[in-house]
Structure formats: C-alpha cells, structure tokens
Amino acid sequence: MPDTAHEANDSHGDVDEGRRDFLYMATGAMSAVGAAAAVWPFIDSMNPAADTLALSSIEVSLAPIAKGQSVTFKWRGKPVFVRRRTAAEISEARAVPMDDLIDPESDDERVKGGKDEWLVLVGVCTHLGCIPLGQKAGDAKGEYGGWFCPCHGSHYDTSGRIRKGPAPLNLPVPPYEFLSDMQIKIG
C-alpha cells in the first residue's frame, strides 16, 4: 500500500523488503523440506519390512544332495531347483550349439566356475509361471533331460535352457554364491 512514510525512507524500505523476502523464502523452503521429509516414512513403510528382508536370502546345505539328484527349496515365495548334475548331463549341455537355442546362453554362464556340477535355477516356467516337472525321480524330464512344463509343453535341457515349446527364456539363475564347498547362499 502506498505510504509516503515508506517512500521517504527508501533505503530502509529496501532493507525491510530484502529481509522480508528472505524470511518468506527461508520459511517456505524449510516448510517444503519438512513436508517432503514427512512424506518419506509413509512411502518407505511400503518397502519390504525387516522380517521380509530377513527371508530374502537363504543358506542351503548341498551335502545331502547326491549326484543326479534334484532338490527344491523355497526362496522369496518361489521354488528354487538345485540339481547336482552327472558328468553326462554336463557334457550334454556343453555340446549344444548356440544356434540351436531359443534363448542363447552357454552352460558355463549359468554355473559358478569350478562348480559346474551344481545347477541353481528359479523353478518357474518363463512362459506363464507354472512349476516345471523334473525334480523328483519319477518325473517327466522332457525331451532334453532337464525339465518339462506340463501346462503348455515347454522343454528345458540339462542346463535349464528352453529348447522346445512356448516359453521365451531360459529358467532364470538366481543370485547365489558359494559360502563353502557344500554351502550356498541364495539371494
């Protein structure tokens, strides 16, 4: 509002205006920071909780698994296939030319160095999510000796790669590492 008193003391007016603007900016900035900080806990509360995270990795002992045997573990709500392959299964997987593969990937990319008898896969068919057969002794293993998905007929080989059927990708290898010769940590 026009006020002759203010106009007369113009220099004071400038300082007052400067201080006022700074005050408004400081208050506004601090409020914005506060509001953003206040929102974060609510958003973060939707992230996985501590008990969920505690189950996000499992340690698995490989000792009880015999050569040629497959065992299923539960990891993050999904089945994980751990197969101790025979030498024949390994060489069969290695002998496949890349051109024959629907999702080209070499066998040694799917196992850990020096531990190629151990195959660790997420046992969920990459087509529409069924659990393939092949873990138990009497199960159908499909035409390539690995796994067979009964839902729509996908065949996986001894490296868990898709060879025939509607699935587009190989059975995924979850993140895992060897803690010792007979102990792995998945996830």
């Binding site: 806990p41 609510f42 973060d44 509360s45 992230n47 909780a49 501590a50 969920t52």
Partner: peptide
C-alpha cells in the same frame, strides 16, 4: 507388534 518392530517406520506411524 510386527508394525512396531519390522515395518519401516512402522513404530512412528
């Protein structure tokens, strides 16, 4: 109790 202990910021909310 799970909210209080395990959910991120659950105790606060």
């Amino acid at each position: 109790e799970r909210i209080m202990r395990d959910v991120n910021f659950g105790w606060l909310i």
